[in-house]
Design a protein around this nucleic acid. Sequence first.
DNA 1: CTAGGTGCAAACTCTTTGCAGTTCT
DNA 2: AGAACTGCAAAGAGTTTGCACCTAG
Lengths: 155, 155
Amino acid sequence: MEQRIERIKKQLHSQSYKLTPQREATVRVLLEHEEDHLSAEDVYMLVKEKSPEIGLATVYRTLELLTELKVVDKINFGDGVSRYDLRKEGATHFHHHLVCIECGSVDEIQEDLLGEVEKVVERRWNFLVKDHRLTFHGICHRCSGKKEPEKEDRA
Amino acid sequence: MEQRIERIKKQLHSQSYKLTPQREATVRVLLEHEEDHLSAEDVYMLVKEKSPEIGLATVYRTLELLTELKVVDKINFGDGVSRYDLRKEGATHFHHHLVCIECGSVDEIQEDLLGEVEKVVERRWNFLVKDHRLTFHGICHRCSGKKEPEKEDRA
DNA sequence: CTAGGTGCAAACTCTTTGCAGTTCT
DNA sequence: AGAACTGCAAAGAGTTTGCACCTAG
């Protein structure tokens, strides 16, 4: 954790950005919720618990900055909100997502399933792939177990 | 064209929706711009050319309805706007996209490249895939040819 | 010291909604 | 007739921005 913050700090400094307490608090929240897919508002609430003075605008600005630095990825599952997902260190590709249309849960797939597919795209469409977004919509293993799933809205 | 409208009409009627002139005009615009990825505003502007009385809210409502009927797919490329993409008739899967980070163009891949991948997901994650979204970000064949690509914004 | 950063409130953009009036069947 | 639909304007939700003040390096 501390090492990752240290590394991000250097990354910021290398472009003459500062690691302010607000930014550090924001990064810590992201690190502590690595598996989640927090919206800006979510992050704001969580940061506020420890640094109540922080403003929502600062959170937005920090998240934008971190996106630029490729520390996080900004994603969008189709509800009107942007979500921010910490990039695994050393990850060469953006991980995939499984969105359950029953309970709304979002799971991550870290493995890269697209190696072959990207080669095909590069060869056949002459398109140099730099990044990708892959999301599956369907029924997760938790919901497919139930016979008559009761509506538990896990928004 | 006429047949497709006829079919959509039936689909609407089967759920006691009506095919109003406004809806028909909207569908026509979508059919005429099948390759594009129009935003609601884009559709509105185009429909307005032929049916100037139409309101933006109606366009939104129609697009929502068509999404529900799976006539179109609502997509989101990360700019703040939803775009609407006509589903090819008989398409069993949602087509993929190639977004060029140089010129902003969006190309479509109709082939299904995910057959194998979906099987893996179903087996290994026990996730019943119903739909997917796959977008590649990179350099398109038009831009990779140029040495010093001049900024032609093909928004 | 000073470029960069912050909080706040106002501004903006995209989308949805309430409502009174209209239209398809 | 009556449910479905429409246009308009107002309301909402999420995000961005201007500005005066603050602070990390």
